[in-house]
Design a protein around this nucleic acid. Sequence first.
DNA 1: GAAAAAACTGTAAACGATTACAATCCAAGT
DNA 2: ACTTGGATTGTAATCGTTTACAGTTTTTTC
Lengths: 331, 331
Amino acid sequence: MVGIVDVAKRANVSTATVSRVLTRPESVTEKTTEKVLNAIEALNYQPNILARQLRRLETKTILVVVPDITNPFFSKVLRGIEAVAVAKGYQVLLGDTGNNVEQEKGYLNILQQKKADGMVLLTARMDATAVEEVARSFPVVLACEYIEGSSIPTVSIDNISAARKATEYLIELGHERIGYITGPLDSVLSRDRLKGFYQGMARNNLKVDPVLVQEGDFTYDSGFNLMMKFFALGQLPTAIFASNDEMAMGVIKAIKSKGLKVPEDISVLGFDNLKFSSVFEPSLTTIAQPAYEIGENAMELLMNLINKEEVKQEQIILADKLVVRESCRNI
Amino acid sequence: MVGIVDVAKRANVSTATVSRVLTRPESVTEKTTEKVLNAIEALNYQPNILARQLRRLETKTILVVVPDITNPFFSKVLRGIEAVAVAKGYQVLLGDTGNNVEQEKGYLNILQQKKADGMVLLTARMDATAVEEVARSFPVVLACEYIEGSSIPTVSIDNISAARKATEYLIELGHERIGYITGPLDSVLSRDRLKGFYQGMARNNLKVDPVLVQEGDFTYDSGFNLMMKFFALGQLPTAIFASNDEMAMGVIKAIKSKGLKVPEDISVLGFDNLKFSSVFEPSLTTIAQPAYEIGENAMELLMNLINKEEVKQEQIILADKLVVRESCRNI
DNA sequence: GAAAAAACTGTAAACGATTACAATCCAAGT
DNA sequence: ACTTGGATTGTAATCGTTTACAGTTTTTTC
């Protein structure tokens, strides 16, 4: 292994000078710079980042905790994060929890052990106090999710208003008997969307039939199964609002499997605007989240925290958008 | 920041002992262990991993270079990698290249600078010699892709035989005039699948019409556009083999847009078996790759390299599978 | 040309753990 | 009681950089 001392020896300078050539070239003569660079070249020297990190007490690494990397929505957020991270000279350490709360907790340690300079959480199902505890001493930002009553910086859309908007869109189309399929209710995000649904109904003086509100888990299968459950119960709604696109697709498949048509017989509305949602038949009317931008913003927020710059805005709310396609129509 | 010396002081032992309690508890008395643990507890001490890493010259981190994390196939491979990585006490550093060859090269440095103990590449479009150079001094394994004539350990399916098998399936169904849409031809993987297609045709004494072989880039749009090109050229094939599912969907959309039906008028075959492929209408007949297992195997191979264990098998070929659904039928 | 200022370079102490080696302790064997 | 040897523990070197501070050289100024 060739180290800085080897370079220093070969170039006939001190290790300090070598280090300076690498980190603050303007502080050293052109002549010495050249000598040093030659030596580096000749020896094919690569500084050991670990040593630098230890000395500087920073890792230039951030940890991203994702509930499921396989979910295209999250991977898009992740990409936004990664893009600005590398632009700022940071690397991304990946923490996929597989939707497992225990693993989620485990990743908190990585921060405390100084293996990363900061963390962005795309999931916050674990003990809120544990997160807050860590956030007190280390840079942490939440993306997509948030923790109620916490002051941890957050970037997300306004799930409540988005769901309300979508619900009211269905109501405008003349639907009154609307079914709703939630995400897992241990996440605030799911609860917020549900809240938005209730608000939309209430504002228009419509009653929500409790049997038409069912808890799913964001998977295609749960959408399919819950729709089948609606069929089994008799009493169909005229429209279904599924709290993500994947479940919406399951719902539609279930409807088709009964020989009915979407949107002619039942309208279906999704949430996320996956790439595939426009390809699906019928193409999905859905709420689009700016996934990539959420990632970018989260990372920028984190950079501010890490650099102890003033954080102007602690809660960034990005705009969502209702994308109207074919899966909903007036009654 | 509370360090090991603080703990040592409070427990009235040396730093060496504290370290031992943490790393080899069996080498220290029960009584002292307890004292130390108490002190650790009281001070809420977390060892600084950087320091340990520097001393041990290992990072317990591996780098995964992915062409596009947003692609569900790659994210599934990644998940397989991550799962065995964390099981073995390693973390995953993510390198998304955005299909950009320059960025790909950049990630090689991370290894050389010792920020990771090893690397798995899910893409190998860059200069083969550069990769080999790095692989000589550091643990590297390739997954999905491979480098021709190189001895870098690899895990993938046999793309040639898989594509040949798929082609022959179409031929069995009676198709003779078959179109093929390749992936980007700067990747071996794409060239292999193309080779398999040619082989399948040749074995059955069928001529390949050169205009029916077009280069795509694995995106939905390229599938759509190339199919439209086939229409524009007149002279339609009776079946299209697209070298991934996303393009196959584009192809099908294009066919439908012309008022034709799949598979009644034209059969379409894909490759990858994405989650959505079974939901798509018609559901796709396709080649299934064991994405998760590829990831697992790659990581296990890498572990062997890192631990300098003997690597029994340098090239692991996993089984692919033709999944027959609705998008192809006999002529 | 000497003094002062500026620019550059070198010495050595960090960073915070691990671990080779030395020192000590303690029980068992004589 | 006195070795002996194994089990614990402590001392201090070490990993490979960065950087405060000191020392040296060069440039500027009068």
